[in-house]
Amino acid sequence: MPEPPLLGVAALDAHYGDFQALFGVSLTLSRGEVAAVIGANGAGKSTLLNAIAGLIRSRHDAILFEGEPIGDLPANRIVGRGIALVPEGRRLFPSLNVEENLLIGGQIGRPGRWNLGRIYELFPVLAERRRQASTSLSGGQQQMVAIGRALMSNPALLLCDEISLGLAPIIVRDIYATLRQIVGAGTAAVVVEQDIGQALAIADRVYCLQEGRVALEGRAGEVTRADISAAYFGV
């Protein structure tokens, strides 16, 4: 019997009240793979990540993780299964200092390679600032805390929502270099980006969303810029 894919999203619909944000989205990801999800503003990229992470509930079997349906589980139980989200805009806890932000990420106690020491090795600057308020850090450093906080739960799948947003290009390069290290160690990832270049460089598979539907999908090496432009803008 073949091993089931790590993540299988099948015919996922998502709604905000009366507004439908996703229409029958499907996506598959194997262990250790990286998928890039790209698309214009409002295409449904964040909604897809929020649905996988459980912040938006969906149909029981719309999302399979390690072969088990998790679509109707709440977010606080999904993280224990091994899915961690780095939310858009970083969303650190302002009344927790840097180290507390990291510790709370690990408080479910899922075993694995990541712990406070390893995070500080990955981001040495955070070790120096461990007692500082998270709000006093620069944007790039805050993004490191957000990634570290997600890693502390030792996820098998890391969901990254626009981690380059608002950061200087040089910082973005560093962050992505680190992300490459992380996935190199075996963690799978879904990366949502508007910065297509960064996303394509790291991804194995590409999904392009347009108005809540998958407009294009393929192996990262096989889709061309022209394909993406067409799917991105719907021309």
Binding site: N76, V79, R91, F93, S95, L96, I104, G105
Partner: peptide, 14 residues
């Protein structure tokens, strides 16, 4: 404190 700051993101911490 985390739940007070941001109840939505707190769920992501389990």
């Amino acid at each position: 404190r985390a739940v007070s700051d941001d109840p939505r993101v707190a769920q992501l911490m389990g």
